[in-house]
Design a protein around this nucleic acid. Structure first.
Lengths: 198, 198
DNA sequence: ATGACCGGGTTGCTTTTTTAACCGAGTAAC
DNA sequence: GTTACTCGGTTAAAAAAGCAACCCGGTCAT
């Protein structure tokens, strides 16, 4: 019947996007701590309290792009077809990400994406807060994998692997190579890493 | 000090413009009574009560472009330099309008403007409401001109002249001529009409 | 003529946003 | 060493917007 999302919800989403986009674009332009939240609010044409109603902290203005993938690993494991091993599901998921050059795999050479990753990795407070997100992600994955120390270890190892793979890809691209050029190595690395996990 | 208009005021103005523009554009496209206020609200991405908070009636969605000039004649008279006669001030003001092809003078050949005027003149409820605006305008001008029946008569005559001039100009343009082409005649007509008023 | 719409316009109630003021930590000036 | 910034983040009150439900007058079936 109606596919309308509702006026309120639509505007909220747009406001959120406007804030996030304004923030990232200013951060890329001048660096994380050379931009005040006031600047961002002004650029997004909203007030400061409104900004903080959408994003709890200044760091989250950057990290929401990661946060959108929050719990993805756990979901992949939970939603896998029966008969498929968790690691296999995660392996395939990561490979699919590589094939569509998903920014989270590090295999993306759009200048903005590269600059964005550099921003995150070179700003201490951002890197710090990012690991907190990863911890939550890890817990969720652990819960999806089962109980006890075994599941925890497994989860930590899988996510560690993904982080290493992504950073490796990003590094190669930061060195000037194209995503397309790096793709085969990225796939090979991923295959090797995930197979060793089995 | 501050040259900022304030967030609230700026957004209000933008919303108002969005509603007005959406309305006029829909009216021009389909005709006044083939567009419901719901359509307009949807196009402007606001709710119906919000629409009516900005415009008291459906007619005002069209007429706000005239309403923005509400009280202009009175203001021109009040703000005239000392030593200038009221009719002279109004005459100069109208001529200035002609020179910049202000739509209210009827001397404007932008297709949208022409269509807009046709819309107003051929839709009874709009024409009706427009005269109500003109009455208020007339009262304001009368007050600016002084007291008593004398001022009233003067005000009515001046505004009648302006209406005739504007309609004459519009008619010539509706017949296919360009504003630039009509301009000299419009100036001559205005000079003659205002001089007769003295 | 009854009941079911549709149109313009209104009414409460709730959610969202603005505003201005403030807190607490840092830091530069004098 | 105080004063006075700036910056991240919060609070309370008031304005604005959304939503759903309604009123009223038409119009069109049945």
């Amino acid at each position: 019947m109606s596919e309308s999302t509702g006026l309120r919800a639509r505007k909220k989403e747009r406001t959120r996007d406007a804030i996030g986009d304004a923030a990232v674009s200013l951060f890329l332009e001048r660096g994380f701590d050379r931009v005040s939240v006031n600047d961002i609010a002004a650029a997004a044409e909203i007030s400061k309290p409104t900004l903080f109603r959408y994003f709890p902290t200044k760091e989250d203005l950057v990290l929401h792009r990661f946060a959108d993938h929050q719990g993805e690993a756990a979901r992949v494991v939970r939603d896998r077809r029966s008969g498929i091993k968790p690691v296999t599901a995660l392996h395939r998921h990561f490979r699919a990400g590589l094939d569509r050059y998903d920014p989270v795999t590090g295999l993306n050479d759009h200048p903005e994406v590269v600059a964005f990753h550099r921003l995150v990795f070179t700003t201490p407070s951002l890197a710090g807060r990012l690991t907190r997100y990863q911890l939550e992600d890890e817990e969720a994955l652990a819960d999806a994998l089962g109980e006890g120390i075994q599941a925890r270890l497994r989860a930590a190892q899988v996510l560690a692997v993904q982080r290493v793979l992504a950073r490796t890809n990003w590094q190669k691209i930061a060195d000037g190579r194209t995503a397309h050029d790096v793709h085969p190595e990225a796939v090979a690395d991923a295959d090797q890493a995930f197979n060793q996990l089995q």
